[in-house]
Design a protein around this nucleic acid. Structure first.
Length: 485
RNA sequence: GGCCCCGUCGUCUAGUCUGGUCUAGGACGCCAGGUUUUCAUUCUGGUAACACGGGUUCGAAUCCCGUCGGGGUCACCA
């Protein structure tokens, strides 16, 4: 039988990194097993669901290069099991809800919310699992006002399923109680719609977060009542914050969009996230998406949660940045440079605030000498500011060790002469000439030179900066530095 | 609190199923050193863990039991 999996997020907020991982694992499983991956939008909660969040989900998944075979797209939807939005599947749920009602496997409950809340509190105080008393379970055809539809769950025995990651998981049926599956207008609730959709969409494996474990017996009970098959279940461990609780906004940035904006590369995110709670075994840690698919096995998933370690992400991201082709990297950096005001894009050309024009090639050169210092794309603005804007710095920064002002001035002057001597403006000639001129005391020559160009204590090297800046600009900056003394 | 799940360096993990090759390996971080004008890159070395207690066994990180610890979940949300 063909394996079919789904990722079923609710569009109730910015797309979460934890959700992204669930989506990824479903995708990996589908690809590895030549199955189908479906994106279903769980928007039964009309008040909280928003179209903008739905778009955020779709775009984020796309940005990560996770493709799905069926489901909601930006424009419409694809696949033959639709509609893929639960808000559009009301009639389907109604049919099943009525069936259960007719067979007396579910019943209307007229208890008021206040009543229920009181009961719940009491149970909680007594240290019991709150569950419905069953007050309306026996009353027939009471017809006054709104009601909810409760599932008549068995009071004896237990429900057990074989989790593909955790093994046997068992729940006492008596702990479950008669839970609500729908309302008087025949709109259906989560535990019910999931079962119906997974069945109708012929989902074979449900791969989701550990937080759904306790919903699983309820869903299995509904499947039994309906006489439909139970899919395989696999519950992934959660992504944790530094305090080991579920990763949330108070720990770190949690939306995929935020990571994109900070300048993390999708391939780095994928590599990092897939190795949270999963590992192919062995010592290699850098894998492309294709390689991860090739290695992917559900059984290799860990059972325990994994702390989201931003340092590790940074290190992986830095690695991917260093591997990137300069031109490609330049294009990826442009949005960050324009966003922060260093460059302005006009008719496909780039200008700095002084009106100086930069070609993409210029930017690529700049990026090429900064990239080994970048942990993420946004850092280009701090690392390369002196290429796009005038430098300003304190005179003292020019001082190498105990040099006197005169020595610094002399050093700068020698630099100027050297620059004039360089015949061919390429990296080798620049380096060769400057090194020759530096003599044995490289620091006292190279440090003031470099600071004059970059205005920074830490930056790329003087040869590299010179190469990118060009002779005229280098001369200009050296002269400007001399005037400070 | 009830129920469910989990427990190898600070963190991500390999090893656990199929006990011995594990005086527990790798990565990130951190520390020290080499290269280097600076920072970064890179290279070398170091730091640091089988939660605890009982068993079973010639032998346990690996199997069993218990304890402790952590997390998840208990809606007319999903």
């Amino acid at each position: 039988m063909k394996k079919r999996v789904r990722f079923a997020p609710s569009p109730t907020g910015p797309f979460h990194i934890g959700s992204a991982r669930v989506a990824l694992f479903n995708y990996l499983f589908a690809k590895k097993n030549k199955g189908d991956f479906i994106l279903r939008i769980e928007d039964t909660d009309k008040t909280r669901s928003k179209r903008e969040y739905e778009l955020d989900i779709i775009r984020s998944i796309k940005w990560l290069n996770i493709n799905y075979d069926e489901g909601v797209t930006e424009e419409s939807e694809k696949g033959s099991y639709g509609p893929y939005r639960q808000s559009e599947r009301g009639e389907i749920y109604k049919k099943y809800l009525q069936k259960l009602l007719q067979e007396d496997k579910a019943y209307p409950c007229f208890c008021s919310a206040e009543e229920l809340e009181k009961e719940r509190k009491k149970q909680l105080e007594r240290g019991e699992a709150p569950r419905y008393s069953g007050k309306c379970a026996q009353k027939k055809n009471e017809k006054k006002g709104d009601f909810v539809i409760r599932f008549r769950s068995p009071k004896e025995e237990s429900t057990t399923f074989n989790d593909l990651i955790r093994g046997k998981v068992s729940f006492d049926n008596n702990e479950i109680g008669d839970f609500v599956i729908g309302k008087s207008d025949f709109s259906a609730l989560y535990n019910f719609v999931v079962v119906i959709d997974d069945h109708e969409m012929e989902i074979s494996h449900v791969i989701r977060g550990e937080d759904h474990i306790s919903n699983t017996p309820r869903q299995i009970l509904i499947q039994k009542a309906l006489g439909i098959n139970t899919p395989y279940y696999a519950h992934l461990p959660l992504i944790l914050g530094p305090d080991k609780s579920k990763l949330s906004k108070r720990h770190a940035a949690v939306s995929v969009q935020e990571y994109k904006e900070m300048g993390y590369l999708p391939e780095a995110m994928i590599n990092f996230i897939s190795f949270l709670g999963w590992n192919p075994g062995g010592e290699r840690e850098i894998y492309s998406l294709e390689e991860i698919i090739e290695e992917f096995k559900l059984e290799k998933c860990k059972k325990s949660g994994a702390v989201f370690n931003i340092d590790k992400l940074d290190s992986i991201n830095g690695y991917y940045i260093r591997q990137k082709d300069d031109n490609e990297l330049a294009e990826m950096c442009v949005p960050f440079l324009t966003e922060s005001g260093f460059l302005e894009q006009k008719e496909g050309k780039y200008f700095n605030s002084q009106g100086k024009q930069f070609s993409l090639e210029d930017i690529a050169k700049t990026v090429s000498i900064c990239k080994e210092r970048m942990k993420n794309l946004s850092e280009i603005t701090k690392l390369a500011d002196y290429f796009f804007a005038p430098v300003d710095y304190d005179k003292e920064m020019l001082r190498w060790k105990n040099m006197s002002d005169e020595e610094i001035y002399d050093s700068l002057k020698r630099g100027e002469e050297a620059v004039l001597e360089i015949d061919k403006w390429d990296m080798e000639s620049i380096e060769k000439t400057l090194i020759e001129r530096a003599g044995s005391d490289k620091g006292s020559f190279l440090w003031p030179f470099r600071v004059a160009l970059s205005g920074k204590k830490a930056s790329a090297g003087p040869f590299e900066i010179s190469w990118v800046l060009g002779r005229d600009e280098v001369l200009k900056r050296l002269r400007k530095a001399k005037k400070k003394l």
